[in-house]
Design a protein around this nucleic acid. Structure first.
Length: 519
RNA sequence: GACCCCAUCGUCUAGUGGCCUAGGACACCGGGUUUUCAUCCCGGCAACACGGGUUCGACUCCCGUUGGGGUCGCCA
């Protein structure tokens, strides 16, 4: 069934600062890393970056990247979250070598399906006397806790049941009293070398006899994560900083279990712009949200890779392949990083510009459709034009979702005009210019941007006006704005009819302002 | 509160005792290109948290202070 622990070959990690660095260790033993999300929510950027670092480390060293679902919290775990997490990882471009649905030698990869394995290990622990049954009820523990709090002391489980005479414990169990299982933590200090943090040591006074199996029979995180990492032959545990304080507990468990411990690398957390933990309050924080808002996966990957890690201090734009080539744990920083939405946007804009037009068109299409900005009718009439329009704004998109806002004058009629520009151009002086413009358009046969521009340059020269005197009011009349892509390209795509109508309407608007003053 | 961890421009970071008048990038500000915008190019602003040591010499090493983060669940 498992066969996974057989042939277990990881020797104890080499001692000494110099040798004990992930890179060198990676070279001497097979690298197996894992990302172990719990399906109690969507994949957020912090998790995504942890996954990315693991994935990069595996791909860089030719090792394996394993996906494991930590669904021991049955209350909160949901299959739809699991699906969403897998989907988001795939979207980001992270693939796994072993995991749910694809399987692997160390399966199953969902913790709720590994109960037998945990039971087996538990038996070992109990038999060896490293763990014991605890009959304390929630109520009792709660009382102990608040009592400790009242005196201002930190609560640690008293270990009340640790020394229960075997007969008494047996009797309680026979009587059907519910019990949990705790690890017996003896006095001492646990020290380990974190690849990123260096040496970390914790006094066992800080650790109490923590619970391995809940009274309902469900194993807890620390217990199963430890067993899984060992049985799955994980060589490096690369995870968020929030797990640093779990590490000594887990090391204690590896020892009790008689299983070799992996190497640990704790990466700093991601904070919001205000240095508090990143949350919805700061904006998008789930990978799916970034996708929906029109971020490109390569942009997010690039950004996330550089959040807490650097290539050389200069490189900002780096491809997936180069990331794999250059990634290493040595250059991971120790301090938490603030998520910078603006830099991500800049990167995203860069990748949008880099992407081919067809791809951006498809993404915009999808976005506009979902947003209800376009429908079948629209596509029937203006599908081709839409593609060309998107081509004109591609350079200015920071996210795909910008497209709707940037193409309002194309997606619908122009109802509003830039107020400042109106003050400048909704004046009698503009009248002859626009009337002339209409005539020029009506006369024009070759309706392409190049000829149009030529035509208007000529017209301007002929009338003794500046070219800009035409362009600005025309843009306002056609788009309602002062900023747009190349005006003549727009006119070409929008079509003669539509543009003339808009120009004439603007002319009427000017005339309307004249009426009262003429009286 | 206890324990653990961290500390360079507003933000992401380079920097491992002299190469630092501290480098790059985002943002911001100016200039150029463009019919406008965007792009692109050029330039500018801006930091070693503080206080003690160690040393001929500290951003780099040590100690303390301050600040931030994490953990303290029968959550993961």
């Amino acid at each position: 069934m498992d066969g996974c622990l057989s042939g277990y070959s990881i020797t104890s990690p080499p001692k000494g600062r110099k040798q004990n660095n992930g890179e060198e260790y990676a070279e001497m033993t097979k690298v197996r890393v894992r990302f172990a999300p719990s399906p109690t929510g969507y994949l957020h950027v912090g998790g995504a970056r942890t996954a990315l670092f693991n994935w990069l480390f595996a791909r860089h060293s030719g090792g394996k990247f394993i996906l494991r679902i930590e669904d021991t919290d049955r209350e909160r775990s949901k299959p739809e979250y699991e699906e969403a997490i897998l989907r988001d990882l795939q979207w980001l471009g992270l693939d796994w070598d072993e995991g749910p649905s694809i399987g692997g030698a160390c399966g199953p990869y969902r913790q709720t399906e590994r109960a037998a394995l945990y039971r087996e290990q538990l038996k070992k622990l109990l038999a060896a006397g490293s763990a014991y049954h605890c009959f304390c009820t929630h109520k009792e523990l709660e009382a102990e806790r608040s009592e400790a709090q009242a005196v201002g002391k930190i609560y640690r489980y008293s270990g009340k049941c640790r020394n229960l005479p075997p007969e008494e414990a047996e009797a309680k169990r026979k009587a059907g009293l519910p019990f949990s299982v705790r690890l017996k933590v003896t006095e001492g200090v646990t020290t380990f070398t974190d690849i990123i943090r260096g040496e970390v040591s914790v006094d066992h006074k800080e650790i109490d006899d923590f619970i391995l199996v809940r009274s309902g029979g469900e194993p807890t995180y620390n217990f199963v994560a430890t067993i899984d990492d060992a049985l799955m032959e994980i060589s490096h545990v690369i995870r968020g900083d929030d797990h640093l304080s779990n590490t000594p507990k887990q090391i204690l468990l590896y020892r009790a279990l008689g299983l070799p411990a992996p190497l640990f690398a704790h990466i700093p957390l991601i904070l919001g712009p205000d240095r508090t933990p990143l949350s919805k309050r700061h904006g998008a924080n789930a990978v799916g949200e970034f996708k929906r808002k029109g971020y490109l996966p390569e942009a997010l990957m690039n950004y996330l890779a550089l959040l807490g890690w650097s290539v050389d201090g200069k490189t900002e734009i780096i491809s997936k392949d180069d990331l794999i080539k250059r990634f290493g744990l040595e250059r991971v920083v120790k301090s938490p990083a603030c998520f910078d939405y603006e830099k991500l946007q800049w990167l995203n804009g860069h990748y949008i510009r880099l992407a081919d037009e067809e791809r951006i068109y498809q993404l915009c299409l999808e976005y506009l459709w979902d947003a209800g900005a376009i429908n079948d009718d629209f596509m029937q009439q203006g599908g081709l034009a839409l593609k060309r329009m998107i081509g004109t704004v591609k350079n200015s998109l920071k996210t795909i979702s910008d497209v709707g806002e940037q193409l309002t004058y194309f997606l619908g009629e122009v109802h509003t005009y830039d107020p400042q520009a109106m003050a400048k151009y909704l004046v009698p002086e503009t009248l002859p210019v626009l009337e002339h413009a209409v005539r020029v358009l009506e006369e024009t046969v070759a309706f392409d941007a190049m000829s149009l521009e030529e035509k208007f340059r000529g017209a301007a020269a002929q009338s003794g006006r500046k070219f800009a005197e035409y362009v600005h009011p025309m843009r306002l009349a056609v788009t309602g704005r002062t900023m747009s892509p190349n005006l003549f390209e727009l006119i070409e795509i929008l079509g003669k009819g539509r543009c003339i109508v808009r120009l004439k309407r603007f002319i009427q608007m000017i005339k309307a302002t004249l009426v009262p003053t003429q009286k």
